[in-house]
């Protein structure tokens, strides 16, 4: 099958037929094929998705759209398309692969700031805020919590957004989404049909709060402390003590909102 051909392909890419090699290489270089394919492979290896061929298809489609957008189309649509592309770049790699993620943040920042109807470079607060709510829309957090988060990290419409602020905002959105997913898992583990006991919920939220309070960017040891705070045995202990509940119940939305508010209260406000 293709395995045998696979490894030699990259080298053979430009030298398949020696007779016309020169003109073919020339032809491919003129089209920019090598650069496009190299760029795609780098992206692929950075993100390492499971569906490689699907990824390449989306990648080229996206590039084509980017090119079309640059070549100009009606104003509002361009903005919407750029937002979609920026989101696509940002979603390629999970934020835990930090260096690859940072690359994508840079690409998204340049993409958004190069588009400016007035031909002035720089990213306006309006577009930045639109991007954040677009990322939010794709997430699964509750509407209320999304609105609160956005309030904290959005910028005013006409302010120029520096890169650091952009990175902070975007990263916060993605970390928040992960946090919400984890909180939902916690809630679902104590679920009784559609609701869960209020007592248990509060016990879990309390532990979560303790863990969040233990974190401190400047002292890595505190991360260990925080993770021990939320370890299964600590959680089990807290839930055991809360067992004597009063029969009151809590919905998933309530739980997620409370968990989200604990997170949001710790987010650095931008403005």
């Amino acid at each position: 099958m293709a395995e045998q051909r696979g490894s030699a392909t990259a080298a053979a890419l430009l030298s398949t037929k020696p007779a016309h090699a020169d003109s073919e290489i020339e032809f491919l270089t003129r089209l920019g094929t090598g650069d496009l394919l190299r760029g795609a492979l780098i992206k692929l290896l950075e993100a390492r998705p499971d569906d490689q061929l699907g990824f390449l298809a989306d990648h080229f489609k996206n590039q084509l759209q980017e090119k079309d957008a640059v070549n100009g189309a009606p104003g509002g649509q361009v903005e919407q398309r750029l937002l979609g592309q920026a989101c696509w770049h940002l979603g390629l790699v999970n934020h835990s692969q930090r260096s690859a993620f940072n690359n994508n943040v840079t690409i998204a920042y340049h993409l958004l700031s190069s588009n400016n109807a007035m031909k002035k470079r720089g990213l306006k607060g309006k577009l930045y805020t639109a991007l954040l709510s677009e990322i939010g829309k794709r997430g699964t957090a509750t509407e209320t919590s999304k609105a609160f988060l956005l309030k904290k990290i959005q910028c005013q419409d006409h302010v120029a957004v520096p890169f650091e602020v952009f990175r902070h905002g975007v990263l916060t959105c993605f970390v928040f989404e992960d946090y919400v997913c984890k909180s939902r898992l916690l809630f679902q583990s104590i679920l009784q049909s559609t609701k869960a006991s209020r007592g248990l919920c509060h016990a879990i939220l309390g532990t979560l709060q303790d863990a969040l309070e233990a974190t401190d960017c400047h002292n890595p040891a505190r991360y260990l402390e925080a993770s021990s705070q939320i370890s299964p045995c600590r959680l089990a202990q807290a839930m055991d003590q809360a067992q004597a509940s009063d029969g009151l119940l809590m919905t998933e939305e309530e739980f997620l909102n409370e968990a989200a508010m604990m997170f949001i209260s710790r987010v650095k406000s931008v403005s």
């Binding site: 395995e3 696979g6 392909t9 890419l13 398949t16 037929k17 032809f27 496009l36 290896l45 084509l64």
Partner: peptide, 30 residues
């Protein structure tokens, strides 16, 4: 890369480009 034969498809698509040169110069490689 060999897991899903990515390089095989890249090789094939370059071959396709070379076989139909005129059309792709006109419509763009991307």
């Amino acid at each position: 890369l060999t897991k899903k034969h990515v390089l095989f498809y890249i090789e094939d698509c370059v071959t396709q480009v070379l076989e139909h040169k005129e059309e792709y110069t006109q419509f763009g490689i991307l």
